Each structure stands twice: as C-alpha cells, then as structure tokens.
Computed example of a mutant assay.
Amino acid sequence: MGTVIFFYFAGVIVLTASLVVALRNPIYSALSLLVMFFHVAGLYVTLHAEFLAAIQIIVYAGAILVLYLFVVMLLNVKRDEQFNKQGTVAMFLGLVLLTEAVLLGMSQGFSVATPTTGVSGEAGASVGNTESIGEILYSTYLFPFEIASLILLVAMVGAIILTKKGIMEPKA
C-alpha cells in the first residue's frame, strides 16, 4: 500500500513539474507549482517527516509561490514567446531519462526504501521529529548551517546595496 501511495505522489509531482514548464499562462504554471508543493509535502508525511512537510507548505507554498506570483504580476507578461522551438530535443532527452528510470527500476525490482530515523533505539521513542532535526542540525551539520546563513546574509546585504545604489549616488 505504501508503494502505491509513493507512486501516486511521485507521478503527480512529475506531472505538475512538467506542467510548470509546459504551460503558457504563468498563473496556471504557478498553480501547478502549488499542487506540486503540496504533493511534495504529502510525500514527506508518508516518510514520517511531519516537520519537513509543514516547512514545505509554509516556506515554499506560502512564501516562495507568493513571490513568484508577485513577479509575474509585476512583469505583466501578455505576449506568447517561443523559446527556440527545442521541443524535439526535449522529447528525446525526456525519453532517454524515462528509459533510464525504467531500466533502473527493473534492476532494483521497483522497491522503495523504508525511512530510517536519525535517533535510534530507546532515545528515538522519547525524542520527536523536530528535536532530532534540531539536534543533528546544531551538532553534526553546524558548520554547513553557519556557512549557509553567511551566504544568505551576504545575499541580503548585496540586494540592499543594489536597490539603494540609485539613492546613494551624489546629485549633480
């Protein structure tokens, strides 16, 4: 039963991700992206990662998708543009990837791995999902976490400097 649910979520994710790229209307594309985000959250729930599912909905479906919609509304795209008509190359590469996925699935017997928890044994029963993520994040992965926060800080400062550049220039 778990395999059927996994393949449902995976199929809908692949379908809606391809619709994000294929649809001409940017609003329909954003709605397809929203459906994809919710199905990724559903996939996290089936893996018993409820915290990641909640973060997926809050951050991606809530914040990132709203940002995309603001950009689409600000750009006010009204005309259809053809992008170099690369449909035949895309179809060929998609067929190659599908063939590879089927061959890989046949060699693995289409088995889906069972999720494992980060904390094992008796301690895993008393510690919740959020606590185990926090413990691993601030112990094992502390250095990459701090590097990512510094990169985000530099990006924020750079964005502020780029937007304020016109204001800070001296007037003649």
Score class of each variant (00 low, 15 high):
residue 2 G to N: 04
residue 5 I to F: 06
residue 6 F to Q: 02
residue 7 F to T: 07
residue 8 Y to S: 08
residue 9 F to R: 04
residue 12 V to L: 09
residue 13 I to N: 06
residue 13 I to H: 02
residue 14 V to C: 12
residue 16 T to K: 04
residue 18 S to G: 14
residue 19 L to H: 08
residue 21 V to T: 12
residue 22 A to R: 14
residue 22 A to S: 13
residue 23 L to R: 03
residue 23 L to S: 03
residue 23 L to P: 00
residue 24 R to C: 07
residue 24 R to S: 11
residue 25 N to W: 02
residue 26 P to F: 03
residue 26 P to S: 04
residue 26 P to N: 03
residue 27 I to H: 13
residue 30 A to M: 10
residue 30 A to C: 13
residue 32 S to W: 00
residue 32 S to E: 01
residue 33 L to S: 13
residue 34 L to M: 13
residue 38 F to T: 05
residue 38 F to P: 04
residue 39 H to W: 08
residue 44 Y to C: 07
residue 46 T to A: 05
residue 48 H to R: 09
residue 49 A to R: 10
residue 50 E to Y: 14
residue 51 F to R: 00
residue 51 F to P: 00
residue 52 L to F: 02
residue 53 A to R: 02
residue 53 A to L: 02
residue 53 A to E: 01
residue 53 A to S: 04
residue 54 A to G: 14
residue 55 I to N: 04
residue 57 I to L: 05
residue 58 I to Y: 09
residue 60 Y to T: 01
residue 60 Y to I: 00
residue 62 G to V: 00
residue 71 V to L: 14
residue 74 L to V: 09
residue 74 L to S: 08
residue 74 L to C: 01
residue 76 N to T: 03
residue 77 V to F: 07
residue 78 K to G: 15
residue 80 D to C: 03
residue 81 E to G: 07
residue 82 Q to N: 12
residue 83 F to L: 10
residue 83 F to G: 06
residue 83 F to Y: 12
residue 84 N to L: 11
residue 84 N to V: 11
residue 86 Q to Y: 11
residue 87 G to M: 02
residue 87 G to D: 04
residue 88 T to F: 12
residue 90 A to K: 05
residue 93 L to K: 05
residue 93 L to M: 15
residue 94 G to W: 04
residue 95 L to G: 05
residue 96 V to H: 01
residue 98 L to T: 15
residue 98 L to H: 02
residue 102 V to F: 14
residue 104 L to C: 07
residue 107 S to V: 10
residue 113 A to G: 09
residue 114 T to Y: 09
residue 114 T to M: 12
residue 115 P to D: 09
residue 116 T to Q: 13
residue 117 T to N: 12
residue 118 G to I: 11
residue 118 G to D: 10
residue 119 V to T: 11
residue 120 S to P: 05
residue 120 S to A: 15
residue 121 G to F: 00
residue 122 E to H: 10
residue 124 G to C: 05
residue 125 A to F: 08
